[in-house]
Design a protein around this nucleic acid. Sequence first.
DNA 1: AAGACGAAAGTGGTTGA
DNA 2: TCAACAACTTTCGTCTT
Length: 307
Amino acid sequence: MRKIAMDETISRCPECGSVNLLFDKRSGEISCVGCGYVIVPVMADAGPEWRAFDGEKEDDRSRSGAPITMKMHDKGLSTKISWRRRGRGEMTKAQLEKLSNLKKWDRRTQVANSNERNLTRALSELNSICSTLAIPDAVSETASVLYRKALKNKLVRGRSLRGMAAATVYLACKQCGVVRLLPEVARATNMTKKEVGRCYRLVVEVLSLRTPAIDTRLYVSRFVNNLNLKGDVETLALEILENAKAVGLTSGRGPIGMAAAATYLASILLNYRKTQHEVAEIAKVTEVTIRNRYKEMLERIGMDVYI
DNA sequence: AAGACGAAAGTGGTTGA
DNA sequence: TCAACAACTTTCGTCTT
């Protein structure tokens, strides 16, 4: 993580050099789509702007608690009655009993109904997926919101909670323009691609969401980065991709296969000699797909331009 | 021996009647 | 609802470096 001054403009990731950066309006963070590197502009301090020198003043000036987050089942808003035995000395027996009842029901009402219980479990699942995949905060908030919607529409009932959680994370990534592959998300939950894919389609259909396809170029950034290749490969791969698009090679083809093929070609042309196997591994497609795509590219756009 | 190639069969999703 | 279809995967034998 790096801190930058507010007025400093930043166009490339200082870590991997990728130009694909994501700005999170909520936290003000900029993160790199390729490698997940986070850049924090030095700006608003989230703490109180006043100072208090004694306890009384502190109470006087305290505000309304932690910021709201969608990542907790009660959005971090509800209160809890402490179980600590503080100030009990002055209470009568009846008062003590009443207090203990209050505590009991306080706790029960918070996670008692099935939706709340489900949400509690799902959100912890969601957080764990996001942390294994190094997914930015903005995206996991989005995923939480999506999961709530799915739950409200009774999409989770009878289906696997983990599958749904994974699906909403994958969906949130797409909506936020963060590149994560379906097999990766599935792996983070020990589910199959098929299961998560099914949940994903269901959510998209029922909530009638528009899911903008991830820009093929973002996949390139990610693959180049994961293969430890440099910016020149990214630039060339993007150029190849652009030409492929111009001759109509992209229509009907999966964007991931196209990006993988362009990355492979660029690495070969620039003598980095990555194998089809290596690229296939990163892009989670088969070597055959990469072969088919790059053969087409060779046929339709002469590679002699690049040499 | 590793990598690349390509044929053939299989899988799961989409589309249109 | 079902068959046709395209994209992609899996598997495997063969060729090339």
